[in-house]
């Protein structure tokens, strides 16, 4: 036990500070990935709700592929494939030399693409849950398309979507550990480095597990609070 405190401590030779730093990278990576994923998910959900066959097919394809392929594969694809694609794009614009993508950006994008596929399902379900009468009423009030979306549909959509989004967020948080394989020093990677360097894997993986658990329960609670607060209908402003 004394050994564990020494290894996880903050004094010289202790890994405490490094682990906490890495945990904040995990949170940042997850938040950014989730936020960008909301954009992808929103677009894919909109695509699936459209009448255009092409759009529906593309959106469905996106969701099927990234929900079905192991996340590890997607991450590798983006890490190596992404740079190659960007480099040749850079060339075609007249540049020479390489376009390197930092692991953090690749990780964020990977999480965004994967979580977007899951978020799309949540948004689609939430949209379909909105009563048709709400659309009709909004039309009857003479609101234009943008107003209808912003003032009527969107607030309701969000409150329907919140529980599902909470689940996707938990998924994102855990998925972020896979970004360790492309060398980004987030929580998992830091635990691995420490375990390898000190040959005490048990202590460090337990520490990592506890930190993940702490982040998951704090953010899970925040989502719960948000759900309770969320207006079922448009708040009268």
């Amino acid at each position: 036990m004394v050994d564990a405190f020494r290894l996880l401590g903050f004094q010289h030779g202790g890994w405490g500070a490094a682990l906490l730093m890495a945990a904040s990278v995990t949170v940042l990576l997850s938040v950014l990935g989730f936020a960008l994923g909301a954009v992808f998910g929103g677009l894919a959900a909109a695509g699936r709700l459209r009448n255009s066959k092409v759009l529906r097919f593309l959106a469905l394809g996106y969701c099927t592929v990234f929900r079905g392929v192991p996340d590890l594969l997607t991450i590798y694809l983006l890490y190596y494939g992404g740079s190659v694609a960007l480099t040749s794009l850079g060339h075609s614009l007249g540049g020479s030399g390489f376009v390197g993508v930092p692991a953090f950006a690749t990780g964020t994008l990977a999480i965004a693409i994967i979580s977007g596929a899951y978020q799309a399902e949540v948004y689609r379900g939430a949209y379909l849950a909105i009563d048709q009468g709400q659309h009709d009423a909004a039309c009857a009030l003479g609101l234009n398309r943008l107003q209808r979306l912003r003032q009527v549909i969107f607030p309701q959509l969000l409150s329907y979507a919140l529980p599902g989004l909470g689940n996707v967020w938990q998924l994102v948080l855990k998925d972020s550990s896979l970004i360790s394989v492309i060398g980004l020093v987030e929580l998992m990677r830091q635990a691995q480095i420490a375990a390898g360097s000190t040959r005490e894997p048990f202590i460090f993986y337990i520490a990592a597990a506890l930190l993940y658990l702490a982040i998951a329960s704090v953010t899970g609670h925040a989502f719960y609070r948000l759900e309770r607060k969320a207006p079922w209908r448009v708040r009268s402003a």
Partner: peptide, 17 residues
């Protein structure tokens, strides 16, 4: 910088370092 062994050569060729 540190880079995982199994991605070392691909990462060099795409210019990460």
């Amino acid at each position: 910088v540190a880079q995982d062994w199994d991605g070392m050569i691909p990462a060099l060729t795409v210019g990460k370092f």
